[in-house]
Simulated assay, not measured.
Amino acid sequence: MNATYTLLELRRITRDWSGTFFTAVLPAFFYLIFGSTVDAKSATAGNGNVAMYVMISMAAYGAVTATTSIGGHAAVERQQGWGRQLGLTPLADSSYIGMKALIAMTVAAVPILLTFALGAATGAHGSAAAWAFSALLCLVGSAVFAVYGLLVGTAFRSEAAVGAASGSLVIFAFLGNVFVPLSGTMLEIARFTPLYGYVGLARYPLTEGQLSATVSDPLWLLVANVVVWLTVFGTLAVVFVRRGRERQ
């Protein structure tokens, strides 16, 4: 990979203050509102407390917002001629993909670190294993939504569409039991939505799948949700990439 190109890309992204706000600051702000100030923040939640439960949820949401945006813009860049420009350089496709993956993970780490730091400073408590593994799962699992961004970018070839894809994550979050605890029929529906498995896995080191005194998610269900959606996003992205090549 080309370190110079990677650093230039990171600088370009960080100059986008509005994007940085929504990617990093907004999830941390949500945590402060919904996690650190509620009366029940010190109540027990699995291997920690409610504040940590909300902290993980908001960090995961920020991470997928970042990777969706990076993946989508990478696809749009390639289809609007940047790929041909790079083709004039010694940079291989595999290096380009590797750099974009590194950039996506780096940007996704920012809201995770910021939200976890605020959590530690405002009363989020949990076991050491829960802190470490939840942060790792937030970061690794967010890669699924880089593929989602890639799908939208290849399907619509528009930066506006990529922005809409990031916005759609708000809907996925509400439907996926991220912002508001769901129950009954809505919870059953939520289990089939894209964010449910990812956020459930991120919380698993804390909750061990327990949603309430009587309801829990087995680990296999959360893993299956992530694998299925990764397959769906990946397959559709390949279809649209091939369709785009046939038009050229």
Rank of each mutant, 00 (worst) to 15 (best):
65 T>N: 13
67 T>K: 05
78 R>W: 00
55 M>R: 15
57 S>V: 06
68 T>K: 01
75 A>I: 03
53 Y>S: 13
79 Q>M: 01
56 I>E: 07
72 G>P: 04
56 I>K: 00
56 I>W: 05
80 Q>C: 10
66 A>F: 07
55 M>D: 01
61 Y>P: 06
59 A>L: 00
57 S>N: 13
95 S>E: 15
71 G>Q: 02
62 G>M: 01
65 T>Y: 08
59 A>C: 09
45 A>E: 13
94 S>Q: 14
87 G>Y: 04
92 A>I: 09
44 T>C: 03
49 N>T: 13
58 M>C: 15
62 G>H: 03
80 Q>E: 05
62 G>R: 05
73 H>Y: 13
68 T>F: 01
71 G>N: 09
47 N>C: 09
70 I>K: 02
44 T>W: 12
79 Q>T: 15
51 A>M: 11
80 Q>H: 15
48 G>F: 02
64 V>E: 02
86 L>V: 01
52 M>P: 02
92 A>H: 12
84 R>V: 13
88 L>N: 10
87 G>M: 07
83 G>Y: 00
45 A>P: 05
48 G>L: 04
64 V>A: 00
73 H>A: 11
77 E>K: 09
69 S>P: 07
44 T>I: 09
61 Y>A: 06
50 V>H: 01
77 E>Y: 07
65 T>P: 05
65 T>R: 07
95 S>Y: 10
57 S>K: 15
96 Y>N: 11
70 I>Q: 07
75 A>S: 04
56 I>R: 01
59 A>E: 07
47 N>Q: 15
96 Y>E: 09
97 I>L: 14
55 M>T: 14
82 W>V: 08
88 L>W: 11
92 A>N: 07
69 S>H: 09
70 I>S: 12
83 G>I: 04
85 Q>P: 01
43 A>C: 05
53 Y>K: 14
74 A>L: 06
73 H>N: 15
84 R>D: 08
48 G>V: 00
51 A>V: 03
83 G>A: 12
53 Y>W: 12
86 L>E: 03
83 G>H: 05
51 A>P: 00
75 A>Y: 03
79 Q>R: 14
63 A>S: 12
44 T>F: 12
92 A>R: 13
79 Q>C: 08
51 A>I: 10
46 G>F: 07
86 L>Q: 11
86 L>W: 04
59 A>K: 10
56 I>A: 12
52 M>D: 13
83 G>C: 01
98 G>N: 12
73 H>K: 14
80 Q>P: 11
72 G>M: 07
74 A>I: 03
86 L>R: 06
68 T>L: 15
75 A>W: 03
57 S>E: 14
70 I>W: 00
77 E>C: 00
